[in-house]
Simulated scan of single mutants.
Amino acid sequence: MQILDGKALSDTIKIELKKQSDVLGLSGITPGLAVILVGDDAASQTYVKMKEKACDSAGIYSIIHKMPSTISQEKILETITMINTNPNIDGVLVQLPLPKHIDTTKIIEAIDPKKDVDGFHPFNVGRLVAGLDGFVPCTPLGVMRLLSHYTIDVKGLDACVVGASNIVGKPMMNLLLNAGATVDICHIFTKDLKEHTKKADLVIVGVGKQNLITEDMVKEGAIVIDIGINKTAEGRIVGDVDYENVAPKCTYITPVPGGVGPMTIAMLLENTIKAAHNRLV
């Protein structure tokens, strides 16, 4: 069993991105990322601080637009319009989830697709489905980079993606399809989850339910990617996989924390640098 170390790989990627940022600087370009943070959700604030720190290490200028949870949708849209037209900002990130009175779809659709470094705009979603270049959601992109780094070729593998969100599950499915895997995708209405995961060479799970994937649900020699993040009663951060009992059956497995999480942030930085390069075109 080998652990897929996302923390180590993300650190290496950040060093390379800093070099790219420095080269862009020779052309008078400082990559810029604008983050919109609505409300006082503790997890969202923590994520944004982590992203801000990561941007600094990669030579990316970042600005955070903090807004109260009572902010109107119109005010958020006005801010996005302002960012879209700012030539010094290459990427726009709206930290999710948004308050219930805000239409998340309208907010995402308002972002300039060329600055959509989260890869959530329908324009970029469509390009991903069609196998064309564009911005890909950071978490599934990070999974693919992690697999590639460890020379794990998914072509021909039977893959099972557990979770069908627009942020992780659906783009993960499309990336795997584009790479030649046979993909089975499961969700809350799937009748027998074990029936699907047990036969998979590659299991990717990200639903936010502790110990969802147990030892009897994974075949011997499987590759397991755990995207889930949960906090135990003791305050520990764990994934969706019963790691202690599942890991011995795997050829490769990601830890939580230290697996996919750091890769998500690294891919956000990479997408921002990619957007900054577009200024040279």
Rank of each mutant, 00 (worst) to 15 (best):
K66Q: 13
T70I: 09
T70D: 15
I71G: 00
L77Q: 07
T79S: 13
I80M: 07
I80F: 12
I80C: 14
M82P: 00
M82V: 10
I83V: 04
I83H: 04
N84R: 02
N84Y: 07
T85D: 15
T85V: 12
N86H: 12
P87Y: 00
P87R: 02
N88A: 13
D90W: 01
D90S: 15
D90A: 09
L93H: 01
L96C: 06
L96Y: 08
P97R: 02
K100W: 10
K100C: 07
D103K: 14
D103P: 00
T105R: 12
I107Q: 05
I108D: 04
I108M: 03
E109V: 10
I111Q: 00
I111E: 01
I111A: 05
I111T: 10
D112T: 09
D112S: 15
K115L: 00
D118K: 05
G119A: 06
F120D: 10
H121R: 03
H121W: 00
F123H: 08
V125C: 11
G126S: 12
G126N: 12
G126K: 05
R127S: 00
L128P: 15
V129E: 02
A130R: 10
L132V: 03
G134H: 01
V136C: 01
P137Q: 01
P137N: 07
P137A: 01
C138N: 13
T139Q: 13
T139C: 09
T139M: 13
P140N: 02
L141N: 12
V143H: 01
V143Q: 05
M144L: 06
L146F: 06
Y150E: 09
I152E: 11
D153F: 13
V154E: 04
V154R: 04
G156R: 14
C160K: 05
V161K: 11
V162W: 14
V162P: 06
G163L: 14
G163S: 07
A164G: 01
V168T: 07
K170V: 15
P171H: 06
P171I: 14
P171D: 03
M173G: 11
M173N: 07
M173I: 02
